[in-house]
Nucleic acid binder design. Structure first.
Lengths: 144, 144
DNA sequence: TCCTTTATATGATAAAAGTCATTTTTTCTC
DNA sequence: GAGAAAAAATGACTTTTATCATATAAAGGA
């Protein structure tokens, strides 16, 4: 569904979000351990998210990554996926046809449109805050 | 959503299905041209589909690939995707967690479950016959 | 039987995605 | 300021996925 980079990215963000709601910054190494991801790769993804203004990074001692209170509530999954994977997930033809469109649809066009709209609706209705809360109250997990 | 192999595979099958409903066999080269795919790669995918008993191949002159009348009506997209991509699409955790389950869910587990169930329902309700018909009556296209 | 046609099998190559290692820059603390 | 901590940047490497090329096997027709 998503690229690996995107999976790691979402996981990292959920973790950062949880920390940020306790006003704690968290470094790349700690993130990688917490979400069980290769740390160098994770760093690259985090940079993308910084550039997309989804998280903020602070250099130097006691530095790390953080999300503002505003960001916690306003950042939707759609934005995250778009920042990492682009909007191929939402637009790309399910059968890989470059010319596929409403006017000249592939045989699966309409069916896929429905699924995708569904997915987008869900991603757009989910904030980081919501996901982080699940982690905090133990209803969901990122790691065994 | 699907791998490229799977995209090509579905396209090829729709084309074969259309030909088979006119009782015509079609060869690898013709398929590759019709669906605009690399022919050698397509051949490999077709072999997988032969092994999965989704299509039948006939060697020699006037040979090629075909689908039985029964197959046209009974082959669902779920089976095709499963034959090529395995069942990762249906089972794999959306965040890539190997331990994700109903008991120990990732924060997106339930939301994804819904989308995926949706997708599966659609794929399971779609037969090759149906898709091929769209091609025949010009309501859908595989190529510009 | 031999030649042609077409599928099958296998191995090599290319491109993309993912991972690792190293260096540079920033900023805090002393 | 000097040193240490941490992010940012860069480039190389590995693995996976996709693609190409070649050789083999089967079947029909002359």
């Amino acid at each position: 569904m998503f690229s690996k980079a995107c999976e790691y990215g979402i996981r990292a963000l959920i973790f950062i979000a949880m920390k940020s709601s306790k006003d704690e910054r968290v470094g790349n190494t700690a993130i990688a351990i917490a979400i069980d991801s290769p740390s160098a790769f994770t760093a690259k993804i985090l940079q993308k998210l910084v550039k997309a203004k989804i998280i903020k990074s602070v250099k130097g001692p006691y530095g790390g990554f953080e999300i503002s209170e505003e960001g916690l509530h306003q950042t939707k999954l759609t934005a995250i996926v778009k920042a990492i994977d682009g909007d191929a997930v939402y637009n790309r033809c399910g059968l890989g046809l470059s010319e596929c469109s409403a006017l000249k649809p592939c045989p699966l066009h309409d069916k896929f449109k429905a699924v995708r709209a569904d997915l987008k609706t869900i991603l757009d209705a989910t904030t980081l805050k919501e996901l982080a809360s699940q982690l905090e109250d133990g209803t969901a997990f990122l790691k065994l």
